[in-house]
């Protein structure tokens, strides 16, 4: 019978992504309810040395596939490796990150393992001995409770939502042979163009300062960049601002952009179209700064200021500078 809670850990360039620890901690919680073991799968090249770190977050055993063919990540290689070790061990639950890599891999695994997956979950629990996954749908306009009729019961977890909690377990390394067939590896990463700004991606950001139509033009974002620099935040934008060509597509928050869940979301000159609200309403604290007191964004905001953002933001930036000095 299917048993154990498994995660697929994510690393890049030999360092764990934060989501890996979030996955490990969540798996530990579920496994403790079931009285079962937590195992992780870790794939890459030259990564055996870091595997043990997962033990700190509650992983009992780490199945490691170490091969040059597993670096950098390709769907072909990673899906083959993970599917092999999962099939051999038959876990009850398999968790991945809802990161770009985790989304790509988890969906391919559904095909390989012939099972079901709940994507981008914001809560997971055990009900009647089985996984119950809660996930936003329609970009958060409603939620769905997902139940499973096959094993492994798969869920991908939204980054930044589940806490990473230290809970030391053995983290014992078990090596496995991914048995990759070179003929099956079709995709090739020719180039990795790194973003050198040092800013967190919107989907992983702890704080977001977002600007909408009220920024009046691309130059308006300078004051948001300044505030973001003081806070260590990432700058986002509404669809209106992106469609106007003020900000790149990758900055867009909303139903047809990025769905975000930072600790702090500061919406500046964002009216709060329903498709924007859908993309950011799972933020922990929302601040709205807008001249228009009737703007729908205020219905979601924990704190609101009705005023000219071009006057408020520079003052607020100075205040933050003082507080954080």
């Amino acid at each position: 019978m299917a048993k154990g809670v498994w995660i697929v850990a994510e690393q890049r360039d030999g360092a764990f992504r934060k989501i890996s620890f979030e996955l490990a901690s969540t798996a530990r919680k579920l496994a403790d309810v079931l009285g079962e073991e937590v195992c992780a799968v870790l794939c890459g090249s030259g990564i055996e040395g870091i595997a043990g770190q997962l033990g700190k977050y509650g992983v009992d055993r780490v199945f490691v596939a170490d091969s040059p063919a597993l670096e950098p990540y390709t769907t072909d290689a990673h899906a083959a490796a993970v599917a092999k070790v999962v099939k051999e061990n038959d876990p009850a639950i398999l968790l991945l990150g809802a990161s770009t890599q985790g989304k790509d891999l988890s969906a391919r695994l559904v095909g390989k393992l012939v099972t079901g997956l709940a994507t981008d979950c914001t809560d997971v629990k055990i009900a009647d001995g089985k996984l119950l996954a809660i996930r936003p749908m329609y970009a958060g306009k409603c939620f769905g409770e997902v139940v499973f009729s096959t094993f492994p019961q798969m869920a991908s977890l939204r980054p930044n939502v589940f806490p990473a909690v230290e809970n030391a377990k053995a983290g014992a390394v078990v090596k496995f042979d991914p048995a990759l067939d070179a003929g099956q590896l079709k995709t090739k990463v020719l180039e990795v163009q790194k973003d050198t700004s040092g800013k967190a991606d919107l989907t992983e950001a702890n704080m977001i300062v977002s600007g909408g139509r009220g920024m009046k033009g691309p130059e308006g974002y300078a004051i948001l960049e300044e505030l973001a620099a003081v806070l260590g935040a990432t700058v986002g934008a509404s669809r209106a601002a992106v469609d106007a060509g003020w900000r790149p597509q990758s900055d867009q928050v909303g139903q047809t952009g990025k769905i975000v869940s930072p600790n702090l979301y500061i919406a500046c000159g964002v009216s709060g179209a329903i498709q924007h609200l859908a993309g950011m309403s799972s933020s922990k604290i929302i601040v709205a700064i807008n001249k228009d007191a009737e703007a729908p964004i205020f219905t979601k905001a924990d704190y609101g200021i009705v005023d000219d953002l071009f006057k408020i933001i520079p003052e607020f930036t100075q205040e933050c500078k003082k507080l954080l000095a």
């Binding site: 079901g116 997956l117 409770e145 997902v146 009729s149």
Partner: peptide, 12 residues
């Protein structure tokens, strides 16, 4: 199939 099924829809 319905290997994964939304058993219940809930408002946010």
């Amino acid at each position: 199939t319905a290997n994964a099924r939304v058993a219940k829809f809930i408002p946010p």
